[in-house]
């Protein structure tokens, strides 16, 4: 009788695990990317086009840049699409990624309350704007999550010679969208990528107070996880995705993507890199 019970139980587990069964790995590409990329709606627009053409399914895992690179390092994803130049360089140099391909860029903007208590609107450069923020001790919400935006923000503080510490500097540890909402609710400043800003500005009580400085340039790179490190990653899929992104169609579609009538991303694939992708 116990045998019967055991049999029942095992067949139940078996049948349900069939339901939950693993997908065909070679047709699934796991892409780790940043929340800002995902939240902008760009991938939602691009990936169905790629999936239809290639037959692959792309599973997007949207996290901060630090975490995305970490997943690539551990071989838990096949390809990463991030925007943190120096971390990307390190990732490739240490042999976790194959090669970094430029895909596109957008830029960061400094946003804050309309009345601009720190007076950054009239700053001539990003350095000066951040210096004024530090001097005015105006409330600033930082991502504080090791994301690309966070890394960029810290670099900007450093360049401005400000040590961001104290009650005016709040580390949220959250995604871009959430941080924008917090800044809006608190009447605080924050640094955001333009994509997320355009997607969300309608619901926010914030204004762009500084933009256009070359230091705020935000380039995206795409890197396949090195199959020599992790033989079980879907390297073929990763290459197919990269090829599409930096190829003619992907680049055109990136340029065509509009939010609220505005172009969010400027494609910038380098023709010299394309040679590396020839099958």
């Amino acid at each position: 009788m116990l045998n019967r019970l055991l049999f029942l139980f095992l067949s139940l587990i078996f049948s349900t695990s069939l339901l939950a069964g693993p997908q065909n790995h070679s047709r699934v590409i796991r892409l780790a990317t940043t929340t800002s990329t995902e939240n902008s709606g760009l991938l939602h627009y691009l990936l169905p086009l790629f999936e239809k053409e290639s037959g692959y399914r792309v599973h997007v895992i949207a996290v901060g840049t630090g975490k995305a690179l970490r997943m690539g390092r551990d071989g838990d994803v096949d390809v990463v699409l991030v925007h943190a130049r120096s971390a990307e360089r390190k990732f490739v140099a240490e042999g976790f990624g194959e090669h970094r391909f430029s895909v596109m860029y957008n830029d960061f903007v400094l946003v804050g309350p309309r009345d601009d208590p720190a007076g950054v609107r009239s700053a001539a450069s990003a350095d000066e704007a951040f210096r004024r923020l530090g001097e005015g001790k105006a409330l600033f919400v930082s991502r504080g999550d090791d994301s690309g935006t966070n890394k960029k923000e810290l670099a900007l503080w450093k360049s401005a010679g400000v040590h961001p510490r104290g009650g005016w500097y709040r580390e949220a540890g959250q995604g871009m969208g959430r941080v924008l909402q917090m800044a809006s609710e608190l009447g605080a400043y924050t640094l955001t990528d333009r994509g997320t800003w355009l997607a969300m500005k309608k619901g926010l009580d914030l204004r762009i107070l500084h933009q256009g400085d070359p230091m705020l340039f935000n380039p995206y790179g795409i890197i396949a996880v090195n199959p020599e490190r992790h033989p079980n990653v879907n390297h073929q899929g990763a290459l197919a995705l990269i090829r599409w992104f930096v190829g003619k169609e992907g680049q055109e579609k990136i340029a065509a993507f509009r939010k609220e009538g505005e172009q969010l991303f400027i494609p910038n694939a380098q023709p010299s890199e394309l040679a590396l992708l020839k099958p």
Binding site: S17, A20, P22, R30, H59, I61, D76, N232
Partner: peptide, 11 residues
């Protein structure tokens, strides 16, 4: 259990 490739799946 990395070889099972289960991370980021419904399983």
């Amino acid at each position: 259990l990395g070889d099972w490739r289960l991370l980021f799946t419904q399983s």
